[in-house]
Each structure stands twice: as structure tokens, then as C-alpha cells.
Design a protein around this nucleic acid. Structure first.
Lengths: 128, 128
DNA sequence: CCTGTAAACTTACAAGTGTAATTTTAATTT
DNA sequence: AAATTAAAATTACACTTGTAAGTTTACAGG
């Protein structure tokens, strides 16, 4: 499993837009981000170039404009980061992690129910 | 909730030793890390100074040597990073996160059992 | 008391990141 | 075809991080 390129926090915000709306032009990316971030269009452009250089996305020309598409799947990237997070802080042990979240009282009764349902379904599948 | 200082990945490795063995001197930190990392003692010293400057740890002098102790609790730092991770990648939804781990087939039947036990216990507590 | 040595303090330097401004280029409008 | 203008390409710059090396200082031993 060859490592995916490193994506910085700000770059990731840009990628979220690309993942959701690709193929998407520079201006539209800027527009989408303007709702949630206070970034200059120049800044967004810089991040798009860096992402292209890193091979996270690619583009085609529509006359003079660029239209971007992802090269890396969001799911794959999230998987990589999840694994890294889990190892860094919980020695790779999902149980410790969930346990920590439970201790932090961050889960409502409903959320706990949901989790139990999830696990139950997973069990069934594993059985077969 | 005032933000804790930023701790880089390498710095975190150093902190793990400090958290586990504090109060601990520079040389002992270097020694502990030598088992798991290929870092020059100089590198470790740099990281210790940076951590002190950031206010993550403090030290006292034992004659000419420094003896370090943490100022930030590991648990607090992990909580902060966990929240940040969860928001960044799963919109703060623990269910989505666990669900993702389940989909990645990274949990053995045993681990799933463990999780279920955890949740059951948590439910009981929440009840009372 | 002088000196060697080990510790701490200061400096180094490239890569990555956040955050743009400036310059060039190519399409569009007169 | 020339001029306008909007996009892309290039340049900028400070801060953090990884990774140390060099320099100063103070204790311990002779």
C-alpha cells in the first residue's frame, strides 16, 4: 500500500470541495469555500497548485480555465489518516479509542444506541 | 477551554517518555527513546527545549542537569486531538467514525465483543 | 585552583504550511 | 489587430518541524 501524498489541513478543506463537486473550476472552488472560510482567492489557487503538484488532484483546460478532479479518493485518505491517528494516540487499539470517547461523556444515549446497532449488524455479517 | 500548545509528531514521542517516567532527566529521556527511535541526543535535546518553550513541560535543575516534568496532561492532549480528528474527518460524528473502522474490516470479532461490552457498561452508568 | 568534560544554550538549514501579491499569458472584446 | 482582462504562473515571506552541529558554561576531579 503505497503512501498517499501528505495533505495539509488547509489543503484538505480545499479537497473536500473538490471531492464533493468535481469536476469543478477554480472560481467555483473559491466560491464554495467563501461560505466557510475567509481565504483570499489567491490562497485557494496556491493550494490547488500545490495539490496538483503533489498528485492529489489533476486538471483539464476548459479554454483558459482549469477544471479539477481528484486523483486520490477521500475514503482512502481518511483510512490512512485514521490508521495513523489510531496508532499515534491509542496504539492501534480501537477499543481504547472508543473507550476514551465514552469517558469523555461525548456520546448521548442515542449515539450509544446507534453504535450498538452498528455492532450488532456487523456481527451478523461476520457470522455468515 | 483554552487551547493546549501544538505538539508535533516527533515532540509527542518525546512527551510519551516524559509522561511515563517524569520526573526524568535529559539523558534518561535520550536513553528511553534510543530503544524505539534513531535520533541523535542533540535532536532529543532540541525537542525538549521546544517543548519547554511551548509550555508543554517544565524542568528543575539537579545541580547542572535538568529534570523534566509535564505541564500538560496526556489525557487532555489526547482529548483535544481526538476532537479535532473527529471534526476534521467525520464531522464530529462518532458513529460515522466507528462505522468507517468497521467497514475497513479492521476489527476482529473479539474486538467487536469488547466494544459491545463497553457500550453496555456505559449504558448502565448513564441510567443511574 | 585549574582543567576537562558533560550539560545546556545558540545557531543552522531545508522542507512544508499558511497566506498572499506580483507578473505573465492567453482569450475576449472593441 | 490591438487592447483589455481574467486566469494561471511565479515569487514572497514568516513560522513550524525534523534534524542536528557548534559554542559556552559550570561542576567535579586532580
Amino acid at each position: 500500500m503505497h503512501q498517499l501524498p501528505q495533505i495539509s489541513e488547509a489543503e484538505y478543506e480545499v479537497m473536500k470541495v473538490v471531492w464533493e463537486y468535481a469536476p469543478i473550476g477554480t472560481n467555483e472552488v473559491v466560491e464554495k469555500l467563501s461560505h466557510t472560510h475567509d481565504w483570499s482567492p489567491k490562497t485557494v489557487q496556491t493550494m490547488l497548485s500545490r495539490l496538483a503538484k503533489k498528485g492529489v488532484l489533476t486538471y483539464e483546460k476548459d479554454s483558459r480555465m482549469f477544471v479539477y478532479s481528484p486523483l486520490v479518493k477521500q475514503e482512502d485518505y481518511i483510512r490512512q489518516e485514521s490508521d495513523s491517528f489510531l496508532n499515534r494516540f491509542f496504539n492501534g487499539n480501537v477499543g481504547s479509542m472508543v473507550s476514551a470517547f465514552l469517558d469523555q461523556e461525548e456520546l448521548s444515549t442515542n449515539e450509544i444506541d446507534e453504535l450498538q446497532a452498528l455492532l450488532k449488524r456487523k456481527m451478523k455479517k461476520g457470522d455468515s
